[in-house]
Design a binder for these strands. Sequence first.
DNA 1: TAAATTACTGACCGTAAGGTTAGCGCAATC
DNA 2: GATTGCGCTAACCTTACGGTCAGTAATTTA
Lengths: 217, 217
Amino acid sequence: MSATPSRQESQESRDEILRAASRLFASRGFHEASMSEIARQARVSKALIFWHFKSKEELFVAVIKRLLEPFSIDFATEAQELDEREQLKRLIELYVQFVRDYTGSVRFFLTRLLRDDPEQQGPASFTEQIRVLYENYRNLMVDLIKRGQEKGVCSRRLDAETAATFLLSTLNGLLVDVLFLRTPEASFGNILATLESVVFTQAPTASADPGTGCANG
Amino acid sequence: MSATPSRQESQESRDEILRAASRLFASRGFHEASMSEIARQARVSKALIFWHFKSKEELFVAVIKRLLEPFSIDFATEAQELDEREQLKRLIELYVQFVRDYTGSVRFFLTRLLRDDPEQQGPASFTEQIRVLYENYRNLMVDLIKRGQEKGVCSRRLDAETAATFLLSTLNGLLVDVLFLRTPEASFGNILATLESVVFTQAPTASADPGTGCANG
DNA sequence: TAAATTACTGACCGTAAGGTTAGCGCAATC
DNA sequence: GATTGCGCTAACCTTACGGTCAGTAATTTA
């Protein structure tokens, strides 16, 4: 805990910088987050940042990498013995949980996604990375629904692709509501239940469920 | 079309500036859009911008006002003789259409919404304005659903508030999909149909509808 | 037609940004 | 125990920003 630099403290200062940078990039965006401010918050000199990372852009990329880490859920091995219904529920739960836990990062991602101008970007671009991640999650969902439909657990009213899009859209929308418009989360559970009533067939495993699924006039 | 300024050309140059500013603010955000670049694109001197608007912030506000104009839909008078079912459909259609027509503005709004940090803002803030607009739209929807439920046109499986949240969430999610992730719009129609099957009771006015609403096992 | 006003510009200013450089103190290597 | 190199900083450089100002040619007012 002294001012004597060592191999190990180098790593620590690097981390400190990444933490400060994450915070600032997330709350202000790339351009409004200044290197001086990052340095101040990380309690190091600005020059040290440029010693660790050769440009602001490189620092940014490092931050992104770090934020993206928790996304790599090894879902396949995590929830193998559950049936399709429960696996799907768990997948949705993971999504909601992730957004809750990493709200800052999600905001950050969305901001970047929104800003990056349409099309024409290298395949290694940030937008592309996120799209791939999202696609993977989505594919997992499509597979689950397909298998669920084969076993009669999922409704066939929509094909799996459409059902997944529907599911994800509503989840994303809920996310937008809470994140952007700051709607109270009151109706959240209710809505998830409705969602489930759309993708699943009638519940075999009973749970606290007020509505009985299908209303007619 | 000469270089002679006149009362009328003042208005024209002002418009030119607003157009350029809209474009740049939308594509780059507030901070990355520089006054010099706006001036260049509007083909006027930077000083003229400061003659029309006393600061960058003021220019920005003027741009916002302009972008917000098309939002004021006088829906009430537009679709009075339709029944609740058709009115709701029309309301959804308007939303989708708006997002399609003003994608740039919507991106812009979202970016702002995302950036403005949580809470603590004057009630006249931009975020607040948009939230009010959104609330109005939402209330319209809630009212329609309530009336629809009374007349048996809308399903009672969800209370009107929750149903509206559900509807809007999915719409927003679809929007995010198309806007952020650039998912093909293929499944769009299918999903809207599903949405309708959730909020409405069984269709009295028949249309091309493959699924029969309720599947069991 | 002289004075005042309007619409406009080029040159300029202070500030803050991203980035560089010269060099410091400490730790390990020989 | 001198030398090498790592971790780090203060001070500096260049560039681009938002914004100002003095001035000018045309138009309106008198």
